[in-house]
Amino acid sequence: MHIKVKLFATFRNGRFKEAGQERQEGTNCRKIILELGLTEEEIGIILVNGRHASLDHLLQDGDTLSLFPLVGGG
């Protein structure tokens, strides 16, 4: 299946802003995150097609996954 991954803020460093990826059916958000070299603790918001999703969410062909880092300073 083909998915689109969009990265935001510091997640772009050394990676990309947006990229198309070929993945096996049954791939969840966690697998993509770990393969990007990110950790679960760094994740702020996960959106799939603009809606909040969990790490375990299974991606479908044509999905857009957006990842935002955790921001908590003041």
């Binding site: 760094e42 702020g44 880092p69 955790l70 921001v71 908590g72 300073g73």
Partner: peptide, 9 residues
């Protein structure tokens, strides 16, 4: 998705 600790700051 927060478990503990700080963010990118």
């Amino acid at each position: 998705n927060w478990v503990e600790g700080k963010g990118i700051e």
